[in-house]
């Protein structure tokens, strides 16, 4: 099986623009950037629209992303907006995945999606714990894996592999 057959096989498991078309109709002013790689579709939107877009993706019958698989972040130091939020969505009824991303600046603040998917509670806490992303409206934004009194954000790129302090 060559590389392209393989990508076509993965593409069957991912949303291939169906939701994008619905989003473009519903949010005609919104700029949506699309990245395709290995059959996976990633949509990138502005943080102001994040909550509305996610709510639309969850509630619209044609999208129906009722399951939030994962919330995480990426750190790209040197970019104008160094943090990227990553939401992996899954739809049981359509059996499709979709990735939504949004870039946020230094001192990242994004709205919490835990009102939409309760599972985001711990996933966002972990993201806060590791990257220092503030989630507005989160019911219990505390560290989850690192100790409560820990200082620093371990998964930011400037954080060394060996910790700042030895204890």
């Amino acid at each position: 099986m060559n590389e392209f057959d393989q990508d076509a096989r993965f593409a069957k498991m991912w949303d291939q623009g169906e939701s994008l078309a619905l989003l473009r109709t519903a949010f005609d002013q919104l700029e949506i950037q699309v990245v395709e790689f290995r059959g996976e579709q990633t949509l990138i939107v502005a943080p102001e629209a994040l909550l509305d877009v996610l709510a639309f993706l969850r509630d619209d019958g044609g999208c129906d992303f009722d399951f939030l698989t994962d919330v995480t972040a990426l750190h790209w130091p040197g970019r104008e907006k160094p943090f990227e939020m990553v939401y992996q969505l899954y739809s049981f009824s359509r059996n499709k995945r979709l990735r939504l991303k949004c870039a946020v600046g230094v001192d990242p603040v994004v709205p919490s999606v835990s009102p939409l998917w309760p599972t985001a509670n711990w996933l966002e806490r972990e993201c806060y714990d590791m990257f220092g992303v503030q989630f507005e409206g989160h019911p219990n934004l505390r560290r989850i894996l690192m100790p409560a009194d820990y200082e620093g954000w371990p998964l930011r790129k400037e954080f060394p592999l060996k910790s700042f302090s030895s204890d």
Partner: peptide, 20 residues
């Protein structure tokens, strides 16, 4: 360069790897 997500059915549930 690129990003992929792949999930498998582990013994406890979905084990997903998001690689950049």
């Amino acid at each position: 360069q690129g990003e992929v997500y792949h999930g498998i059915e582990g013994a406890k549930g979905e084990i997903g790897f998001f690689l950049a």
